[in-house]
């Protein structure tokens, strides 16, 4: 067995490596190259140096969507994780019907982003119509609409990860705490939370990158309206690339910066939360 694996490893590895090359490495490299070019179609580009990055700096819509996305991410990471953790705590108490609740909470995650966006657009516009408002009245309606949507979609998924984390905590720790007469809040903050740090690392990572890279839901729910004010970064990049003639390279430059931002943020987050993890 060992021997044949050593001999045939390329056969097993090659398809994945190829897919990774074609689907990721090559587009990534050509994407970076294109960010230094001017082009209409990506196969016919001419090198222009840093021009795209200079034009980008003067694009106020990019700056706006950058802080709008940052705010959105902060709000969503906090809300989703707090709620998901709370629900996970409740659903590990072992009362009747726990499994049904877990299934129901998880289900929104099975629906695609575009579909969710349109469904929530109908629901929210239907409610707002009573107050003579729509989701695209100002950017803040869109912002909170998106937040509601994201919470609804993501809490169930994060909950499952937290439940797995909570169930992995050895019960003897709780028994010892009970013996020592620890209060409920002491148990939560001294045992449960520190012991579930690995799950927290994963969940904050997922919510952070999901919120930062959000595209489908944004497109379907508000499409950036009004005046591109509810436009998150990914949609801003898309609109720059496809919506503005002569700005394709700038869109590409934005994408490169976007990649650096998401990469830096998630590395930072990983380092910070990893530090809190305890060895069992």
């Amino acid at each position: 067995m060992q021997k044949s694996i050593r001999r045939y490893w390329p056969v097993f590895l090659l398809p994945t490596v190829l897919a990774f090359l074609i689907g990721f490495v090559i587009p990534f490299i050509s994407g970076i190259a294109l960010s230094f070019s001017e082009f209409t179609t990506i196969t016919d580009a001419s090198f222009v140096g840093l021009k795209n990055y200079l034009r980008l700096a003067g694009d106020s819509s990019f700056i706006h969507s950058l802080w709008f996305t940052a705010l959105f991410t902060v709000v969503n990471v906090i809300l989703i994780n707090v709620f998901a953790y709370a629900v996970a705590l409740l659903l590990t108490k072992g009362f009747r019907g726990t499994n049904i609740f877990r299934t129901v909470f998880f289900m929104p995650n099975l629906i695609g982003g575009i579909v969710l966006g349109y469904i929530w657009q109908l629901i929210l516009n239907g409610i707002l119509a009573n107050f003579s408002r729509t989701l695209t009245y100002t950017a803040w309606y869109g912002f909170w609409g998106l937040t509601v949507l994201m919470c609804w979609q993501q809490i169930g998924y994060m909950m499952i990860i937290y439940i797995a984390g909570l169930q992995a905590i050895p019960t003897d720790l709780y028994e010892a705490a009970y013996m020592d007469g620890a209060s409920a809040s002491q148990v939560l903050f001294r045992i449960t939370l520190p012991m579930s740090m690995p799950a927290i690392t994963i969940c904050t990572f997922l919510t952070l990158t999901n919120s930062f890279k959000l595209f489908d839901q944004n497109l379907a729910l508000t499409a950036g309206q009004p005046s591109d004010m509810s436009e998150l970064l990914a949609l801003n990049i898309y609109n720059t690339f496809y919506g503005r003639t002569g700005w394709e390279g700038v869109g590409q430059a934005k994408a490169v910066i976007f990649f650096i931002l998401v990469g830096a943020l998630s590395v930072l987050q990983n380092v910070l939360t990893r530090r809190k993890e305890v060895q069992q």
Partner: peptide, 10 residues
């Protein structure tokens, strides 16, 4: 693919 990218680059 990368060949095409090279060609378009210049």
């Amino acid at each position: 693919l990368p060949l095409a990218a090279c060609a378009s680059g210049s």
